[in-house]
């Protein structure tokens, strides 16, 4: 629990109304600039962690600090302003179906009161970064899953939040597209943003060689940096390693 931790869970328990445990005295912290995987089977508490972090849920017990701030001190009316400091990416993309790619990303800026001029400057930049320059005026239902997830990441990152949460970002995507998405998240991490990714894709996690938190029945059962912790590799090296020899397409 260093002073520079962005996320700090202290004995956090979340009990649901049904009696099920979402989290059971989970304690962990994530340092600034980290790229952390959270793994565990369905119902292990990954999503609970995410929803607690964006204050969609309140913990039953324990303390959550984000950037040193106790979340229980944030009033309901301040929640929208708190959320603007966190980018969120979901398995089901959660795009606004009635808006074009451009407008979906622009919405995150409109919410925070950016002027139209700023929006016109920032949105094309972030869409170029995510490789969507040619899809500006398409609607979400005209895009592939991978492209939709890129839009969602662009929207999460356009405000340059210090923390990016991704809940099963590759859950609906094929392996090749998943690698692209992970690569994009890694690139965002390299700009200094702390990234927390929840997934049950063990194979991917093993190859990424990043810190891994494993949850089981709401408890943290593993917290370690797996394999070679190559912090400064380029995104190209990163992607190559992910595809790796073992991932070579097998032709039957």
């Amino acid at each position: 629990m260093s002073a520079s931790s962005v996320i700090d869970f202290r004995a956090v328990t979340k009990k649901y109304g049904t009696g099920a445990f979402g989290l059971d005295e989970a304690t962990f912290s994530v340092d600034r600039g980290d790229f952390v995987f959270m793994i565990g089977s369905t119902g292990s508490g990954k999503s609970t962690v995410m929803r607690l972090l964006i204050k969609e849920l309140e913990p039953t017990d324990g303390t959550i600090l984000v950037a040193g701030r106790d979340l229980s001190t944030i009033k309901r009316r301040q929640v929208p302003f708190y959320r603007r400091n966190i980018g969120v990416v979901f398995q089901d993309f959660k795009l606004l179906p009635n808006r074009t790619v451009y407008d979906n990303v622009a919405y995150a800026l409109q919410v925070t009161g950016h002027s139209r001029k700023e929006i016109r400057a920032k949105v094309p930049d972030i869409l170029r970064l995510t490789g969507l320059s040619t899809k500006l005026h398409n609607y979400p239902d005209q895009l592939s899953g991978g492209e939709q997830q890129r839009v969602s990441i662009a929207r999460a990152f356009v405000n340059h939040p210090p923390l990016l949460l991704a809940d099963e970002p590759t859950g609906n995507l094929d392996p090749e597209t998943s690698i692209d998405i992970m690569r994009l998240l890694y690139r965002i991490n390299r700009t200094g943003t702390t990234v927390l990714v929840a997934t049950h894709d063990h194979a991917m996690v093993d190859k990424m060689r990043r810190r891994v938190l494993e949850l089981s029945r709401g408890r943290v059962v593993r917290d370690e940096a797996t394999g070679l912790y190559a912090r400064d590799e380029s995104t190209r090296e990163f992607a190559q390693r992910l595809r790796g020899p073992s991932e070579a397409p097998q032709i039957v």
Binding site: I54, F81, Y82, R83, R84, V88, L96, P97, A108, R155
Partner: peptide, 16 residues
């Protein structure tokens, strides 16, 4: 309602 949900996630205030 899903649209509203997304707006809340991005940090839109209730009146916005």
């Amino acid at each position: 309602r899903r649209e509203v949900e997304v707006m809340k996630l991005v940090g839109a205030t209730d009146w916005f």
